[in-house]
Design a protein around this nucleic acid. Structure first.
Length: 286
DNA sequence: ATCGGTACCTGCACGC
DNA sequence: TGCGTGCAGGTACCGA
């Protein structure tokens, strides 16, 4: 589900419900049974679940922000003290963070339920494939220091400099979170289409002009997707359980064989960086 | 530096 | 109806 626009949408829809609230209870599913019915610790917890529960219980949520594809909850343990903590949540492929009206674990994929000091409000984390990750840390910039600049914040000049020193294919670069933090398979394909650039084009061979065009296309694509509440493919919903609409406007992503909405050519699919890559062979040039 | 392959997981669509 | 296969928005790690 979750690339930059989806995570941004979750942050925006969750913020009014959780900022200023205190976490008064925390239920964590610590173990899962595998095929041979052994209890294994859930790998979604980077620090032990008990540790995370101890840290977050009684903490007040002072802010929520997005950092790349991570949600960052700013927590303060006792108001007045300087005991500041951060709860980092990465949604992986199928993670969902939603405010619900029940403290019950709704299905076998719900792994965390946090009680807020708002009557009838519980924050649920569920994750079918369990590729998501939760952790608590005293800082997060250093913790996430591997990540590159935010695609919505980077200037055109910085982007051009960054892309033109790389010899990888653009699709690989856009997926690389150390290059830019936040793009994934959908928005890499959609941005390249919008820029009219072939996914297998090489960074260092891109003209200054086309690099600027790609920078514009990335920002326009992401901003428009955020306005549409993200792309709901399979199970994505925002913090209040609502679907996004940008999937209805995809130009190339998962449109293999269908006509290009600009020129009518058939959309093609190829594998780049081990990922399905969709493009229009006529509109997108190397 | 860059790439491909594998691993981690479940669910779903598909063909037979 | 069931079974096998391939595929899916994520990242990390290995060796070439």
């Amino acid at each position: 589900m979750p690339e930059l626009p989806e995570v941004e949408t979750v942050v925006r829809t969750l913020a009014p419900l959780v900022v200023g609230r205190k976490i008064v209870a925390g239920e964590f599913r610590e173990f899962i049974r595998n095929g041979s019915r052994r209890r294994l610790p859930l790998r979604i917890f980077v620090n032990p679940a008990r540790e995370i529960r101890q840290w977050v219980q009684g903490a007040r949520i002072e802010a929520v922000e997005r950092y790349g594809k991570n949600l960052v909850f700013h927590l303060r343990k006792n108001s007045g003290t300087n005991e500041r903590l951060f709860l980092l949540v990465h949604l992986g492929m199928t993670g969902r963070l939603t405010c619900e009206s029940t403290s019950e674990f709704r299905d076998k994929h719900t792994h965390v339920v946090l009680g807020l000091d708002t009557p009838g409000q519980w924050l649920h984390y569920s994750d079918i494939r369990r590729f998501g990750r939760l952790r608590v840390t005293r800082e997060y910039r250093e913790e996430l220091s591997e990540l590159g600049p935010d695609p919505l914040e980077i200037s055109a000049g910085d982007f051009v400099r960054r892309v033109r020193v790389r010899r990888a294919m653009l699709k690989s670069l856009l997926l690389d979170q150390a290059f830019l933090r936040g793009l994934g398979n959908i928005y890499a394909d959609e941005s390249l289409f919008r820029a009219g650039i072939h996914p297998a084009a090489i960074g260092s061979r891109l003209s200054r002009k086309r690099a600027i065009r790609l920078h514009e296309a990335i920002q326009a694509t992401l901003l428009h997707a955020i306005r549409q509440g993200g792309s709901s493919i399979s199970n994505y919903v925002d913090g209040q359980g609502r679907s996004g609409f940008f999937q209805l406007e995809h130009q190339v992503y998962r449109r293999t064989g269908q006509p290009c909405l600009q020129c009518g050519s058939r959309i093609r699919k190829m594998i780049v960086a081990s990922r399905s890559t969709h493009f229009c062979p006529k509109c997108q040039k190397k």
